[in-house]
Simulated assay, not measured.
Amino acid sequence: MEISPEDVQQDGARKKVIFSVSDVSIDDARENTSRLIEWPTNQLIVLLRLVRQERTTRYNSLRIIKKGIEHNGDFQKYAEIAGEDYEYWTRKAWVLENIIRDRSGYFPEKITDDYICKVIAQIEKINQKPMRINPKNSIISDTKG
């Protein structure tokens, strides 16, 4: 197994994990599944949030178009297109949920600003925590001397 130089840490330092919300856009969701699998989990969570928002927008459009059909049947073609869009974004959300679930055992039901802030705070806290063993707590005693 090869370890890349940037993965080697010294003096108890941890490799920094970065959670950047701004690196993700809804356009990224159009990537195929094999490419999305390569993404970091944190970015997938942000992308899932965007996809869910897009799905909600598409659902609301579909609902409005269906109301229009009740008054004027000319909207049927638009309803079909809106339905296909809604289905696309629903399936994309399922793909992202499954990738996240495969990695962590679950996926977040709701991804709010508060949720993302808590995740970022936890990542920053862990990034600062060194990996050290307190010699007083070690079970291995010094056999020299």
Score class of each variant (00 low, 15 high):
residue 1 M to R: 14
residue 1 M to T: 12
residue 90 T to D: 09
residue 93 A to I: 08
residue 105 G to S: 00
residue 30 R to V: 08
residue 134 N to V: 04
residue 40 P to E: 08
residue 61 S to M: 08
residue 58 R to W: 06
residue 71 H to R: 11
residue 134 N to K: 15
residue 128 Q to F: 09
residue 74 D to G: 11
residue 39 W to C: 01
residue 80 E to D: 12
residue 103 R to K: 15
residue 92 K to N: 00
residue 57 T to G: 01
residue 16 K to C: 01
residue 74 D to A: 10
residue 56 T to E: 02
residue 102 D to G: 07
residue 128 Q to D: 12
residue 80 E to F: 11
residue 93 A to H: 10
residue 4 S to Q: 14
residue 39 W to M: 12
residue 67 K to V: 01
residue 114 D to M: 10
residue 119 V to M: 02
residue 7 D to T: 04
residue 16 K to N: 05
residue 141 S to G: 09
residue 107 F to R: 08
residue 56 T to C: 02
residue 135 P to S: 06
residue 56 T to M: 04
residue 102 D to W: 05
residue 128 Q to S: 11
residue 46 V to A: 03
residue 34 S to K: 12
residue 78 Y to I: 05
residue 140 I to F: 13
residue 118 K to E: 06
residue 92 K to L: 07
residue 54 E to T: 02
residue 11 D to G: 04
residue 138 S to H: 09
residue 110 K to A: 09
residue 55 R to C: 01
residue 122 Q to G: 00
residue 124 E to Y: 01
residue 25 S to F: 12
residue 34 S to L: 12
residue 66 K to I: 02
residue 98 N to S: 10
residue 107 F to D: 02
residue 113 D to T: 08
residue 116 I to H: 05
residue 3 I to L: 03
residue 71 H to G: 06
residue 97 E to N: 14
residue 1 M to P: 01
residue 51 V to Y: 07
residue 86 Y to M: 04
residue 45 I to A: 07
residue 18 I to G: 04
residue 49 R to L: 03
residue 18 I to V: 14
residue 64 I to S: 09
residue 110 K to S: 11
residue 17 V to C: 03
residue 89 W to Y: 11
